[in-house]
Amino acid sequence: MNTLEFFLAGTLSAATIFLLAALGELVAEKSGVLNLSLEGMMAVGAAVGFVVTYESGNHVLGFAIAGLAGVCVSLVFAFVTLTFLANQVATGLAVGILGLGLSALIGRNHESLTIAATEGINIPVLSDIPLIGAVFFQQNLVVYITFALAIVIALVLSTTRLGLAIRSTGENPHAAQALGCPVFLIRYGCVAFGGLLAGCAGAYASTIYTPLWADGMIAGRGWIAVALVVFGTWKTGRIAFGAVLFGMVSLGELIAQAMGARVPSQLLSSLPYIVTIIVLAAISTNTARMRLHAPFSLGETFDGSNDR
């Protein structure tokens, strides 16, 4: 594998973490819930996924339990914000802090351990194509599932009854409830779905992308995923594009070192954060477009029982 193949293949693999987490956040936000605990949910998923995979040697089991752990953390958030009507921003931060603490607690006996790297699946014939084969047809199964999921989510949101219910819940929960839409249930479901994907994204990071556990290994990727939903103006295709872009940026450090660039490594490590700020400013400056695409009730507490 030459440098270019390595870079492009690595980009898709790194993008998978961002995309998986961002898709879950997208669904939650489409239903009107701003869940800022993404970083914490991913950290719990990463710790649980690693510990289970390390102890059982079974990647599928690792993903399943990590996804479940993500759901559990997201349900704490859902309970506090949806049932107890607490502020979504503050609760997201609180659950995020809890998640980071829990992840360190769960992984404390597995610090710096590694598991064997997994082989990608080789799609016959296609994987033999020069360059394209190595980049697109020798990836891990999760990469394909994630990008397929992006298409499925886009279709569900735009063409199905369920998607319509989710979107109307996010736009105007009062009207949606008046029309018989189970707002409460839909929001719980969307938040839990976000937790599931965040847990799996964490597990992908700790068992496949870099198969090791280190406290703090999510390193802000959850927050970048939150930013990606804004960059993509709540549209699946643009979010996927953004994820690939950030996959590329996060590999910048490796590439610069491989090419022998004489830049402080700390500057390269800051690159994803700097790019996030610049892109965020560039996209948000068009306030009209932001207002048009953002779910209208995003982040607002919905007190449905007092509607009548």
Binding site: V80, A86, A94, V95, I97, L98, L100, G101, L102
Partner: peptide, 21 residues
């Protein structure tokens, strides 16, 4: 473990926000 303090801090804020309702 030191992370237990972080867990406690997270719990504290979560309970506070719930009870504040």
């Amino acid at each position: 473990p030191i992370s237990a303090v972080q867990v406690f801090q997270g719990l504290l804020l979560i309970f506070y926000l719930s009870v504040y309702t």
